[in-house]
Design a protein around this nucleic acid. Structure first.
Lengths: 204, 204, 204, 204
DNA sequence: AATGAATGAGAGTTCATTCAT
DNA sequence: GATGAATGAACTCTCATTCAT
């Protein structure tokens, strides 16, 4: 009889398989429509095994949400721009920053669906992300990159709104990739943010 | 003992009370966490009364979602701009359009929460809204209001993303009103849309 | 507003309509699957009207059952044969008796379905019918019509079983009429009942 | 507290206990008046356990009905008579056949009540049984056992009607056993079936 | 480490029945 | 005589969770 055990000779692997299965199911069907039975089926295990590694359905979901929260926070935190860039370099740097954010989301589609679109926590997560984005904006504004009358909080929220929407309808379905989206987001967004062109505009 | 039967002598009124109660509950707790018992309690009726007016929990939810869908579609459809406007008039017209959209959302907070943030249909609803917005953008682009290289589909999605986010964190919590949000949305958004300043910018 | 009342200006008619509707529904769907709402719908009335004329669903059903019970009892009681018949006359008399029974069943299909095949009371009803049939058999046996070693109780039960079955699959679906069924029932049944008949018959 | 979990270490046993319990309850109270709670109580389990083994109340009922259908069909199919029998042997063979049928019914009283007297399917089941009986009758008629003008379909239905009735009032209540009933059924029935038997018999 | 078997708790839904007019 | 509106009381079924091995 021994040896028939499915696999995961060490529990770590089973735990991981369960977590991944849970992520897929939650992402696909949401929290309430996801049954433990589906998760364990996907993981090739049985229901009691689930409770060997997770306190409850809620706990597993919360863990996934938290994983996403940490990941996206890190990426956004890292996506600030250095000072002393020329105009062209700034654009490129911003595109790169956005690309890294989109890339993280694209690389973790299930987590993204859960953390951004399914979880109740999504509100808090997005609030955090918005705050981090604002922090970057403020810094970059200090570097003279953006006009001085910019409402950074408002701007950050709008940027997040755009990213959120594009991620859902372009990125996750694979209709557009991170770099293209980053480019287009910057393009649209910049011409309302960037100080310089307004000057010239206002000049007239 | 007499007179214990609840009011709503008119069935229509009972139905309405139930629908409103359902809207509140669904908006507050989402579909799955909302129990019929809570809805009828809020409406001052009993569970069978609910089934007097609705096929099922799903049907009631769907009705609310559809109400929202129709409402928002109408508002967005009506929010297109007339041709022949001067630059200043255009801005004002756009602000007005946005304001009407925000106002509809603000006036129907429960429906908005349900149709935009709770329902599975939200994906389809937003897709429709985006399409209607794009239709307006295309028309307005023809009037010469926006630059000609604008990707209207992309732009519409971004605008929707912004509205979506601002509605959730500014409008529904009552932190900002429709007119203020409309003004600020237009302000940020416009300077990436407007044809004129790009010209001069590009000129350089 | 007056005069719009469906009809049944006098309640007797309404009661009758309800009873007939109930009979149809019960016959078609059985007691448990028949809903008051279906009955009143068929009768063109409303649910409270039902309770104007009947104590309960059970009471209405019981009334129908009892109607059937009385009717079939009467018919069976009346179907005994007179003494002093010749062989050929006897046959004809028995056929007539059976025909009257079948005719009653055919004329009251809904009641028959209810009283014979749906009701819990059917057991008691059939027991009564069997007892009445036996009583007739005993009498007729005394007249010398049947062999003397006939177990009348057993015979009555068998006859009832045959009638019951033929009614269900031949009579009620309209595949055979009362007179034909009576003839054939007598034919089959008689040649096991009649004393020495085959002898004489075969002799010829 | 430990050890309160019910037995049935083997799931098959639990399933069987549930099925038997269901059979008893259905036989006793019919489909609609039988509650899952009664079934599981009788089986010493809880309600969810029922759904571990059966799709629904309907499914469990249907399974029992089908068990009966298969069983009775098999028995009736097997109850045909071999050719080449003498008159006395034929009688004995027929009695044996009938006895096997009665015995199956007596041995499975709950199934019989369900399949013959409770189920909606009973109509179809009896139709099948009648057809099988007719098939046997036709064959036996070919062997010259019965008169040639016998309407086999009609005869089969009558035989079934008799069996049905005797089963209900004699066999299931234990008032008469299979062999006695078989004997008496054959006796009554035969003298209408057997070709010219009475003639020769009476002659002597 | 893993599982077969079982359950507590509750949700949605149905239906006979009644109140007030 | 009749009805629109409402309800009490059940019942089936589901699902996260746990026991015993």
């Amino acid at each position: 009889m021994a040896g028939l055990r499915k696999q995961g000779v060490n529990g770590k692997e089973s735990r991981l398989r369960l977590l991944n299965a849970a992520a897929e199911e939650f992402a696909l069907n949401g929290f309430y429509q996801t049954k433990i039975s589906s998760i364990v089926a996907r993981a090739g295990l049985t229901q009691p095994a689930f409770y060997l590694y997770f306190e409850s359905k809620e706990a597993a979901f919360a863990e996934l949400v938290d994983d996403f929260r940490k990941g996206i926070n890190q990426v956004v935190r890292d996506s600030h721009i250095q000072p002393g860039k020329s105009n062209a370099d700034l654009k490129q740097a911003v595109v790169l920053s956005l690309e890294q954010i989109y890339r993280y989301l694209a690389d973790n589609p299930a987590l993204t669906r859960i953390g951004f679109y399914q979880s109740t926590e999504s509100v808090r997560i997005k609030a955090e992300v918005a705050r981090l984005m604002e922090r970057n904006l403020i810094e970059e504004q200090h570097f003279g990159y953006y006009r001085h009358d910019l409402d950074t909080e408002f701007t950050a929220e709008c940027l997040l709104g755009i990213i959120e929407r594009l991620t859902l309808i372009k990125l996750l379905p694979g209709r557009e990739g991170p770099s293209q989206l980053a480019q287009r987001t910057q393009d649209l967004f910049f011409h309302g943010i960037l100080d310089r062109h307004y000057e010239e505009d206002g000049r007239k």
